[in-house]
Amino acid sequence: MPRQSDYAGPALFSYGFRPFFLAATLFGLGVVPIWLLVWRGVLMPSGPFAPVDWHVHEMIFGYGAAVVAGFLFTAVPNWTGRMPTRGWPLMALLAVWVAGRLAMTGLGGLGPVAVMGIDIVFLLAVAAMIAREIVAGKNWRNLKVLVPVSMLAVANASFHLEAMTQGSAPTSQRFGIAVLVFLIMLIGGRIVPSFTRNWLAQSGSTSRPVPFGRFDMLTLAVSVPALGLWVTAPLTVTAGVALAVCAALHLIRMLRWVGMLTLGSPLLTMLHAAYAFVPLGLFGAALAAFGMAGPAGGAHLLGIGAVGGMTLAVMMRATMGHTGRDLVSGRALNLGFLAITGAALVRVAGVSEVVPGLDGIHLSAALWTFGFLLIVRRLLPWLVGPRVATRKPSTVQQRA
């Protein structure tokens, strides 16, 4: 853990997870209802993107990028032993993120090049600040985390350029989702079995998840070209085969983590459930490549289920742990997570009527918004308030 120092500023800017997890959850709460109004033709964003591109871009590079920043600014101090970034640098970075979101709505009437310049600064700044901390802490082995962050920045720039030159950005949509999914494969593939191992040991169980090894390395190695084919040639037989193989490997990988034994800890079960959407979404993308399903199904399973579910589970756990609270999710957060995963499943139905008078798009939007409402209501006071007294070790062991 990093050493402590006096900090007299607002609690919201005392640690990196606080402002960006709050920004992500508030954004997640508001952006989908706005998108639904856009989809119904009630609103029309005046920015440089077509409506669908705006929606996808903001979910990836608005919501997703904020979560990535919050996670990294919380994890890096633990890796380096240095003080966390706090105070005015976090305020400035949050202002950059907000400026990007406003520019994407067309506020100010800026041209596409100016909007791109404002929007891409955030991830570049995050990468630079993380690099500085890792180098200063001489934590060289974690420099590799800059690769996916940099790729996310490249995907954002690519999104803008593709939209400017082609009128829409379907390839960059998949590129951005693919980077976030690979981050889940990489980081989730480390923390899920690690947290599971610790909880099982504390619970007295003799079972353990299989530790990271050659099979995990093989799975990640296969994932890179499979995701690459999904980005560049999503409806080809080659992509379908690669995605199906990749999905099978991730399913096996996930089963090796003995997630069914974690039902006594809903917060931990959420991580396993969210990761399950990785093979599920890859299978959906493979079916689309074989012409057996629509192309949007796999993307929504990956985007809403895997990315949405995993980011929420990580934000819940990190917020509880770093604000001194017991790792117990409670009914509201459990229901919020179920609503988000339910949104992923019903969204696959598309415009088909899921229940009388309600199609998959409207029901999915309602579930997503309801889930985030519960999550914001629970996490907001924790994120803006001071850390509570340190938890007792016995309580952590019993409830983690």
Rank of each mutant, 00 (worst) to 15 (best):
Q4H: 13
S5F: 09
D6H: 11
P10K: 10
Y15M: 14
P19K: 05
L26M: 09
G28L: 07
L29Q: 02
G30R: 11
V31C: 07
I34N: 01
L36E: 12
R40D: 06
W54I: 04
Y63A: 03
A66C: 08
F71A: 12
A103E: 00
I120M: 07
F122P: 02
F122H: 13
V126I: 12
E133S: 15
L143I: 06
L146Y: 05
P148R: 02
E162T: 12
A163N: 05
T165N: 02
S172A: 15
Q173S: 09
F175V: 04
G176Y: 05
V179D: 06
L183A: 06
I184E: 04
V192R: 08
R197H: 14
A201G: 14
S203Q: 10
S205F: 11
P211T: 12
R214V: 08
F215S: 10
M217D: 15
V222A: 10
S223C: 10
V231S: 03
T232R: 09
A233T: 10
P234T: 06
T236Q: 15
A239W: 02
L255W: 12
L255K: 11
L263A: 14
L263Y: 11
G264Q: 09
H272R: 07
Y275N: 02
L287C: 07
A288G: 05
G291D: 01
A293C: 05
G294W: 02
G298V: 06
G298D: 14
A306E: 11
T323E: 08
A332V: 04
F337C: 02
L338P: 01
I340S: 05
A343G: 07
V354R: 05
P356G: 08
L358S: 10
D359R: 07
V376N: 03
W382P: 01
W382F: 09
A389R: 15
R391T: 08
S394G: 08
V396I: 15
Q397R: 15
R399H: 13
A400W: 04
